[in-house]
Design a protein around this nucleic acid. Structure first.
Lengths: 189, 189
DNA sequence: GTTGTTTTGTACTGATCGGTTCCTAATTGC
DNA sequence: GCAATTAGGAACCGATCAGTACAAAACAAC
């Protein structure tokens, strides 16, 4: 029916994700957002109704694009140990100081926006599930309580790492640290 | 030097810390801030020059009021194990969804404001130092590399916990988790 | 082509933003 | 007392905010 939209929805969402991820919700104004999405006001408001809706769709896009990739990477890596695989979560990002969109959203908006909180929590759980699956893959006989707690800890470490990484360069050594945490190495002194 | 200021500087700074802590920098407008500080525009701009300066002073106040208290609490608690003491860092907050001001500042502003980053990093290091001191207090003979790595992990866990806690209620069990991490319990299955 | 429908771009809106001006009130030093 | 100085308060400022109105343009159905 009638005139089709000219812009590419995925490209626009990727642009929105990018700018919100980097700048947050409140610090991103409409001109910034429109430039990042490659849209003018007219098309933007026709397709997204308002800035909050665009943010929520950007979160969904992150889920589908970034979180899914991470989950698949964790599921398919060919390392001998769980720690070596999970250490990827702590590898330096190609773009520094950007952190993780989930973490940014949790800190900036989740307390005052329930829909953001729900989406952030759902993505957190996806990550946690992928982490736990990876742990169980290497220790199929592990106590379920222990593997759940370990996955929880690593998810906490991940978000802490993302938060601190927005403020300074962090030291590496994560394969070893995670190996200790997961009991892959001998007991400490 | 003429007329003395009427307002109490510490009370004003505490108000500023409170509102910035809860709402962040960008989401706090001047009327909000003035109400929280108990000031009118005239006094505010006379004493703080601008919103950013007020935010930086609020961070300093947090350092002096909250971080110092935490550091002292960690140094003086009378527990048998380091884990029991450090578990206080993960206790539920009296005011939920507020998180930790350092973590909020790191995520919202550190990437684009160097002075915020410097202050956040300094406070992080203070916390880390207190954590490590507590670990060494219970294991004076520990390998320094190990205790440093353990303190680092717990600091990461702390910030991750604060970030996730802004989005949902988190399960407890931290004394046990930390005991495992610090090797206070028997090896896992 | 004509009609109907939807997208697009621009001009515009009222509200709110952080910050300034400026006058009055209160205090100190003399 | 008086002069000098600073705090406090309210009115005001241009800039910018998110969002709207509307006309022109592009397509589909016929």
């Amino acid at each position: 029916m009638s005139r089709p939209r000219e812009f590419d929805m995925d490209a626009a969402l990727e642009g929105a994700m990018d700018i919100f991820w980097r700048q947050g919700f409140a610090a991103t104004n409409l001109p910034d957002l429109l430039t990042a999405m490659g849209l003018t006001r007219g098309s933007f408001y026709k397709a997204f109704t308002d800035k909050e809706t665009a943010y929520l769709k950007a979160l969904d896009f992150y889920d589908q694009a970034v979180v899914s990739t991470t989950v698949e990477t964790l599921a398919s890596c060919k390392t001998d140990t769980a720690s070596a695989c999970l250490a990827q979560l702590f590898a330096p990002s190609p773009e520094p100081r950007r952190g993780c969109f989930i973490c940014n959203a949790m800190v900036e908006l989740a307390p005052v926006n329930h829909r953001v909180a729900v989406k952030a929590n759902r993505m957190s759980r996806r990550l946690r599930g992928a982490i736990e699956a990876r742990i169980l893959q290497h220790r199929p006989a592990a106590d379920p309580d222990w593997s759940a707690a370990a996955a929880d800890m690593i998810l906490h470490l991940y978000f802490g790492h993302q938060a601190m990484g927005k403020s300074e360069d962090l030291p590496g050594g994560w394969p070893g640290k995670l190996a200790n945490l997961l009991g892959e190495t001998a007991a400490r002194p």
